[in-house]
Design a protein around this nucleic acid. Structure first.
Length: 923
RNA sequence: GGGGAAGUGGCGGAAUUGGCAGACGCGCAUGACUUAGGAUCAUGUCUCUUUUGAGGUGAGGGUUCGAGUCCCUCCUUCCUCACCA
């Protein structure tokens, strides 16, 4: 009996040895091709989550593969260490954020090491250290000097719970995206980054190999739209009210205007008679949170201001209302309302008895459309009517100038000076300041109204440690006098930087985390940039991933990369485009979800038809046994397709078709229920502490060893999709490694080699190499491992059958272990050593795929009859078309189907890349 | 409501450009070994059918010699933005 594989001893041993021998140290080497592989850095929350393993260990496998293929690979790791949780821990548990963060980092570093990844720890960067945030501050100053950072007043998202403002990107459904607490809009003076200056460039993804979904999300977030700005003046006084519209072709249909309640002009134009009503409405709206304001299917409320505007296109007098369905944050915060052709305006008009005028006659309608006949707004294509000189223009479904009517009106507006063609963005400037302590200080000072940047030689502005964390909600910096009081008149900024700013450039700090004279070393940047492969979660689609693109573009434009570009030229590399985008290729992993959940046990009654129960009543039972005397079917819903339930009762599957009008009784849910509400036992959900379905990676490593966990994560999921956790499946990869261990320790056979059998295993090996390469290339880690399992099966069978000589055995093992090394680094290293090979397997070159060796000699010629496989004939791999047709037609399967007749048609499908050729015979 | 992704065995999931659907693994079944097995090994495992054969990738239609893959209609699920003017 051979020795068992002991993961713990082996893994710790090799982790130490790798450290000691520094085999993962990455250094600039201009003679080697570079590969910068980056995986998103974690926030030091306390413990490494299985999600971190799922994101990082496949990324590590891919980085290792690139390295073995001869690339000089940089695969760094660090911590995104500023942020609110540390501060909350300080307040609630009286522990300093430094201490909390550092002990978490300490712990997570150990957990990361247990993963066996090839992180180069010498390049570790931690965003909350003065050595790091000095350069965050420096960048802030650069942005300020070049007009990309400015202080401005704006309506911002304020979180009462967090006592800070948040960026738009951090607010989801009116709630803070981290804590789920509501936010309110507040007018405040804050620091902004001018990301909107790059709106158009950020819409350009040319040359980026990023997931389509991310590109679309960013495009939607930026929200570019084309239309016109038109100023309506008020009837009394000349207060122009500028509106933005994407439908200038409906200008003649504007029967009223609506301003957002927060609009500046509301106060100016409101009549004395309406003053009380308007003020009352504004107060009501202000008291609402953003969540309430965004409730679906809200009634369209609003009040008349008492003022009238003049529509510049036809000089009509129209009333001005305020309503909360107009958002101050979009466009100009004011709209012309065209109820006939905009659903929201339509609803508002009907609710407040405002007039509706049709100005687009529907294309498909013979009779003129009248407002009385309308039950909803018409926003389809048609002909402009009631629009003076523009009548007859054709309005299509297209947006912008692609629509003839819009184009014509835009020209007319420009020519008459009544309006301008205009592009609008949903994107707002990035609100960068936070009223919190645990962030990078903003290096600015104030002398009264005057803004004074902190001189470079005084950077970094250091976060004071001796502060009190009182549960006031306010940042301790605001009452730490030595910090904010620079001298008698000068006060220091007490707001800190959004942590997303710190993570917008961390890929640069990894290049030279110890560099004291610059944010990064120019030569390192010249060699390593841009990041070649970036992996991480899709939840950062419009925050981090948009910010870091913006950041990179600004740095490029203000010359931060100039020196690196010079080094590139000097080394004979073209810097053109190298600094346009931070990451050339991006892939998102999916999410590991909690395990299966028990489903509903149901009692179904109805009538039996053909082995199936047609149920007219389904009741969800609170127990798992049928009551005595119950007739019908009872069981757990194992599966459901449409209205057919697959009931599992004592391992037997029964089918129940739920009739459309069946009564469905679910305890606790009164009223009519739907078949869709029935839960089958596969329902899965996100892992969370409150659901008690969290998987702890430390325990898994303890139980199975890191390599088994790595292989399980890579093998059992489609990495880009994620899926439910099922620890039973870990037996697959575990058994595979176990068998490999047995094979390796059994040693080389002493039987003589048989040429044909050795050729067979060699062929399989090279076929495996090809599939593993493709799997790693395409982030299809599961197929890369499946193919190696298959190879193990073949090799095992071959060894049992005999005919594999010692030399071939050693050759196969050598290659197989190198294929395995990126996936199971410790295990492969251990066997590599036990087979007497030179340290380290990770310093070996990747097995070279040899197409000639992978080539099959004999293949199956598949005979298809009308496209369905019906037989096969063994033939040579390079069989000619004519010969294949002949053999196929002569085959038994074909003869049977043809029954003496000639085929109507025959099609030869050659075998690609060694796959079987086929002949389709149409009879 | 807009935008996007996806629906394949009991389960996780495979299937280059349309070319043998269900690789690999889990589970399950049978057998072997064992004092024992939640260990290990072997064999089998889409469905129906006696062989033969027939059917089968959410539903329905279409294109094609041939469709999981392409097109149209619909259903379901997930993600995302959301009164976006």
């Amino acid at each position: 009996m051979s020795e068992k594989y002991q993961p713990h001893e082996v893994e710790v041993k090799w982790q130490r040895k790798w450290d000691e021998t520094r085999i993962y140290r990455s250094q600039v080497d201009w003679d080697k091709p570079k590969h910068y592989a980056l995986t998103m850095l974690p926030y030091p929350s306390g413990d490494l989550h299985i999600g971190h393993w799922f994101a990082m260990s496949p990324s590590d496998a891919r980085a290792r593969w690139m390295r073995m293929r001869g690339y000089n690979v940089l695969f760094p790791m660090g911590f995104d260490a500023f942020g609110l949780p540390a501060e909350q821990a300080a307040i609630s548990r009286n522990i300093h954020p430094w201490k909390w963060t550092y002990s978490n980092i300490e712990r997570m570093r150990q957990q990361l090491r247990s993963m066996g990844a090839m992180f180069d720890w010498e390049r570790e960067a931690i965003s909350c250290t003065p050595e790091y945030y000095k350069w965050s501050e420096w960048f802030f100053k650069k942005f300020y000097e070049h007009g990309f950072a400015y202080r401005g007043s704006a309506l911002v998202n304020w979180s009462e719970t967090l006592q800070t403002v948040l960026a738009n990107e951090q607010v989801i459904d009116g709630k803070d995206e981290r804590t789920g607490q509501p936010v309110v809009h507040k007018m405040m003076e804050q620091w902004f980054f001018a990301i909107t200056k790059y709106a158009d460039e950020l819409l350009d993804f040319a040359g980026l190999d990023w997931p389509q979904a991310i590109k679309i999300m960013q495009t939607n977030w930026i929200g570019r739209s084309e239309g016109a700005r038109v100023a309506f003046r008020t009837e009394l006084g000349d207060h122009p009210i500028e509106i933005y519209t994407t439908r200038p072709d409906t200008l003649w249909g504007a029967t009223f205007m609506v301003l957002a309640p927060e609009h500046d002009l509301v106060d100016v134009i409101t009549s004395a008679a309406q003053r009380a009503a308007v003020d009352h409405y504004i107060d009501e709206i202000a008291a609402e949170t953003e969540i309430e304001r965004m409730m679906e299917h809200r009634e369209k409320t609003g009040v008349f201001t008492g003022a009238y505007a003049i529509n510049p296109v036809n000089d009509e007098r129209i009333p001005i209302w305020i309503a909360d369905y107009v958002m101050i944050t979009y466009g100009t915060g004011a709209i012309m309302a065209v109820p006939a052709h905009d659903q929201r305006d339509f609803e508002f008009a009907r609710a407040h008895d405002l007039s509706i005028r049709v100005v687009i006659q529907p294309a498909e309608m013979a009779e003129p459309l009248t407002d009385a006949a309308m039950t909803e707004a018409y926003d389809g294509p048609g002909t402009m009517v009631n629009s003076d000189a523009m009548d007859g223009s054709q309005s299509s479904k297209d947006k912008g100038r692609a629509n003839a009517a819009i184009g014509r009106v835009l020209d007319w507006l420009e020519a008459t000076g009544k309006g301008q063609e205009s592009v609008n963005y949903r994107l707002h400037d990035w609100l960068i300041s936070r009223q919190r302590y645990w962030g990078g200080p903003i290096p600015m000072m104030y002398d009264g109204e005057e803004i004074i940047p902190v001189p470079d030689e005084d950077l970094p502005v250091v976060l004071p440690e001796d502060v009190d964390f009182m549960p006031t909600g306010r940042s301790p910096l605001t009452y730490h006098e030595p910090f904010y009081k620079v001298d008698e008149t000068v006060r220091r900024e007490t707001d800190t930087l959004d942590t997303f700013m710190c993570s917008s450039w961390y890929q640069l700090r990894y290049l030279s985390p110890q560099c004291a004279t610059a944010p990064f070393d120019a030569e390192e940047a010249a060699y390593w940039l841009p990041v070649d492969v970036y992996t991480g979660g899709a939840e950062h689609a419009v925050m981090h991933l948009l910010y870091t693109r913006f950041f990179t573009k600004v740095l490029r434009d203000i010359g931060v990369f100039d020196e690196a570009a010079a080094v590139m030229r000097q080394k004979g590399r073209d810097p053109q485009g190298a600094f346009d985008e931070p990451m050339s290729l991006l892939r998102n992993q999916g999410q590991v979800l909690g395990g299966e959940r028990q489903g509903d046990f149901v009692l179904c009654s109805g009538r039996e038809v053909g082995g199936k129960l047609l149920a007219n009543r389904v009741e969800v039972a609170g127990w798992n046994e049928a009551p005595a005397g119950f007739e019908g079917r009872f069981g757990e819903i194992a599966h459901r397709t449409e209205n057919v339930l697959h009931l599992d009762m004592a391992g037997l599957t029964q089918f129940v078709e739920v009739l459309p009008d069946a009564e469905i009784v679910i305890p606790g849910i009164p009223g009519r229920n739907n078949v869709n509400q029935l839960r089958h036992h596969l329902e899965i959900q996100r892992m969370s502490k409150s659901k008690g379905n969290v998987v702890n990676p430390d325990e898994l490593v303890e139980k199975y060893g890191a390599d088994v966990v790595r292989c399980y994560l890579m093998f059992n999921f489609d990495w880009q999709k994620g899926g439910p956790w099922n620890e039973n499946n870990i037996k697959g990869p575990q058994g595979w490694l176990h068998e490999l261990w047995e094979i390796a320790l059994a040693g080389a056979p002493d039987s003589a080699g048989d040429a044909k059998r050795e050729r067979d295993i060699e062929r399989k090996l090279h076929q495996t190499i090809a599939v593993v390469n493709r799997g790693l290339e395409e982030f299809s880690f599961n197929t890369a491992i499946a193919e190696q399992m298959k190879f193990k099966n073949s090799f095992k069978a071959a060894l049992r059958a005999g005919g594999i000589g010692a030399e071939m055995w050693r050759e196969v093992m050598s290659q197989a272990l190198r294929l395995l090394a990126p996936f199971a680094p410790h295990f492969a290293e251990e066997l590599w050593q036990r087979l007497g090979r030179e340290y380290s397997v990770h310093l070996q070159s990747w097995p070279q795929y040899d197409a000639e060796k992978a080539r099959e000699e004999q293949v199956e010629l598949v005979v298809l009859i009308n496209g369905k496989p019906r037989g096969s004939v063994e033939v040579a791999v390079d069989i000619e078309r004519e010969r294949a047709l002949e053999l196929a037609v002569a085959s038994e399967a074909a003869q049977r189907s043809l029954a003496g007749k000639a085929p109507r048609r025959t099609i030869f499908i050659p075998g690609r890349n060694g796959t079987d050729p086929k002949v389709n015979i149409v009879v």
